[in-house]
Design a protein around this nucleic acid. Structure first.
Lengths: 108, 108
DNA sequence: CGAAACGTCAACCAAATGGTTGAATAAGAA
DNA sequence: TTCTTATTCAACCATTTGGTTGACGTTTCG
């Protein structure tokens, strides 16, 4: 079930790929420019970009001989929603729930 | 950097492990009971529980001959915080930002 | 004590992952 | 056309992953 989550979380599990996403948060970039800060071959970065694309986390569009990489934050939403299912047990949300209960009591 | 995120996201990338977390959301469980719904050996589930423990997503405590598994939602918080860095570009939050701006304008 | 239940360990296996290098393709620039 | 830049492809390699099976240590129960 939900194989999309498999790909999204697997893609996020690699620090190089998370760094790439952080870079794309600033602006769209060409593949060569994405690869520049890493001590790794261009082919390796190309593979990482393939994984991110396959997970739907980025999109790639070729204009001329340059392939532009663009962040697609929508893919993170499903994953975030899934994780928030566990958030109800975090103190901050328990506090919110208690405030909600207090509000309910006030209306009696 | 942040090797903890590596382990958390890698642990979440497997559907069996996500199912286990969802089960533990309801209640603490013994290893054998965790394994029951899966068509997979007990040893395989034991390994999955090891991965989840290593990621800090669950804890295991042995009482008698039974080992109890407990959800540890705190480990998800760091991952959630990381992901929220990308949330600012999601439409839903842009909408919230626009409403905020509108409120600011109303006060002028 | 002896038997059964709980869980892990060790060895093994196939497939996936993350990297390399070198050749190939495609598009601009000279 | 020729050269250079941009990117991928193909083959290869080492390591990790997700599963199996069978033996093993513990704890409880009869």
């Amino acid at each position: 079930m939900t194989p999309a989550l498999d790909h999204v979380f697997a893609a996020l599990a690699d620090p190089t790929r998370r760094s790439i996403l952080a870079m794309l948060l600033e602006d769209d970039m060409a593949v060569t420019d994405v690869a520049a800060p890493f001590e790794m071959s261009l082919a390796a970065i190309s593979k990482h970009l393939g994984v991110l694309t396959n997970a739907g986390l980025i999109s790639q569009e070729k204009r001329g001989r340059v392939k532009w990489c663009k962040l697609e934050p929508d893919a993170l939403r499903e994953a975030t929603v899934w994780m928030q299912g566990f958030g109800q047990f975090e103190p901050v949300n328990l506090d919110a729930f208690e405030r909600f209960l207090a509000t309910e009591l006030d209306q009696d």
